[in-house]
Measured scan of single mutants.
Amino acid sequence: ITIHVNGVTYHFDNPEEAEKFAQKMAKTYQLKMEIHNGEFHME
């Protein structure tokens, strides 16, 4: 699972971890999250 946050790329093997991380980042930084081709993009 690949997550892009403001141009920084994070890779996770565990989908649950990826989702937790994505939600935490979105909440902490008030980010808008989109999913493209199974990759999370946040800005």
Rank of each mutant, 00 (worst) to 15 (best):
A22F: 02
F40A: 04
N37I: 09
H4T: 06
Y10V: 02
K27S: 12
D13T: 11
E43Q: 12
V5K: 00
N6A: 11
K27T: 11
N37R: 03
E19P: 00
M42A: 05
K32D: 12
P15V: 12
A22W: 04
T2H: 14
I3D: 01
F40I: 15
Y29E: 15
D13C: 14
E17M: 09
N6L: 15
T9C: 15
H41I: 09
Q23Y: 09
Q23I: 11
M25G: 00
E17V: 07
K20I: 10
A18E: 00
H4W: 11
L31G: 07
L31W: 03
T28E: 15
M42E: 03
K27H: 12
I3M: 03
V8A: 08
Y29S: 07
G38S: 03
M33Q: 02
V8M: 10
Y29F: 06
M42F: 12
Y10W: 08
K32V: 14
H41K: 03
G38L: 04
Q30K: 08
V5D: 01
Y10Q: 01
H36E: 06
H4K: 05
F21K: 00
A22T: 03
T9Q: 12
F21R: 00
I35K: 03
N6F: 15
G38V: 03
E17K: 11
Y29V: 04
A26N: 07
N14A: 06
K32L: 14
E17C: 14
Y29K: 01
N14V: 08
H11F: 10
K20R: 11
H36Y: 12
T28A: 10
F21T: 01
F40D: 02
E17W: 05
E17G: 04
H36C: 12
T2N: 11
G7L: 08
F21Q: 00
M25P: 01
M25H: 03
K24I: 13
G38Q: 02
V8L: 10
I1S: 04
K27E: 15
H41R: 03
Q30F: 08
Y10F: 11
D13I: 12
F21C: 14
E16N: 08
T2L: 12
E16T: 09
A18G: 08
F40V: 12
A26R: 06
F40C: 15
I1W: 11
K20T: 10
H4G: 03
E16D: 12
E34W: 13
N37H: 08
Y29M: 03
E43V: 15
Q30L: 05
E34Q: 06
F21Y: 02
N14P: 00
A18Q: 01
I1M: 06
E19Y: 14
H11T: 08
K20W: 07
L31V: 12
N37T: 04
H4P: 01
E34T: 13
K27F: 11
Q30E: 12
V8N: 10
F40Y: 13
F21V: 01
L31R: 00
D13K: 10
N6Y: 14
M25R: 00
E34D: 04
L31T: 04
A18C: 13
D13V: 11
N14K: 09
A26K: 07
P15Y: 13
N37V: 05
N6I: 13
K32N: 12
H4C: 11
E16P: 03
M33F: 12
D13S: 10
E17L: 10
A22V: 13
L31N: 07
A18F: 07
E17Y: 04
E43G: 10
K32I: 14
L31I: 09
N6W: 15
A22K: 04
E19W: 15
T2D: 07
V8S: 10
Q23L: 09
K20S: 08
N14Q: 07
F12I: 01
M33K: 00
T2P: 02
M25A: 02
I35S: 04
N6M: 15
G38F: 06
T2R: 13
Q30D: 12
G38A: 03
E34K: 06
V5F: 11
E43H: 13
T28V: 10
A26S: 09
M42S: 03
V8E: 11
I3L: 05
H41D: 03
Q23D: 13
K24Q: 13
H41C: 14
N6V: 13
M33R: 00
A22S: 02
K20P: 01
N37E: 06
G7T: 05
P15E: 08
E19A: 11
A26V: 06
G7A: 07
N14H: 07
G38K: 03
K32S: 13
G7W: 10
A18M: 04
M33P: 02
A18V: 03
H11C: 15
F21E: 01
E16Q: 09
